[in-house]
């Protein structure tokens, strides 16, 4: 339920990017979110129209790209896909793995209109 506060943090960053680039408005915001980020993309989509109102991104589209969940095994070295509550090596089944990708919560890019 903290998606609205995440959205507000997002819009503060987007506004900064718009200022830095002397943009008139923001057309599109692209996020990249991993399944272990602790943020639900659908709820973020719901919160975004509320948070963007009255900002430079008032008409912006929100695009969320979901990143894959990948682990690297410390025993056998394999890199395999995993699911959030089962981060085991897909090759040998060991639980001694490291997350390669999957906990990202990133503002990837912003599309601006300058004139």
């Amino acid at each position: 339920m903290h998606e609205l506060s995440v959205c507000q943090a997002l819009l503060a960053q987007v506004a900064q990017v718009a200022r830095d680039n002397a943009a008139r408005s923001v057309e599109k915001v692209v996020l990249r979110i991993g399944p272990l980020a602790g943020v639900e993309p659908r709820l973020l989509q719901d919160a975004f129209p509320i948070a963007r109102a009255g900002t430079v991104a008032a008409a912006a589209e929100l695009v969320i790209e979901t990143l894959p969940l990948t682990v690297r095994c410390q025993s056998c070295g394999a890199e395999t896909a995993a699911v959030p509550n089962r981060l085991l090596c897909g090759a040998c089944g060991d639980w001694h793995t490291q997350l390669v990708s999957g906990d990202e919560l990133l503002l990837a890019s912003v599309e601006l209109r300058k004139s």
Binding site: N21, R32, L67, L107, A108, S109, E111, L112
Partner: peptide, 28 residues
């Protein structure tokens, strides 16, 4: 998992007509 998207020619490095795409890659 994400670097290919940001390298030159990646799908996020383009800019469309009349618009400027700015790569950010900041933690939210």
């Amino acid at each position: 998992g994400n670097k290919h998207l940001n390298e030159a020619g990646g799908k996020l490095s383009h800019s469309a007509d009349g618009k400027a795409a700015v790569d950010v890659l900041h933690g939210l």
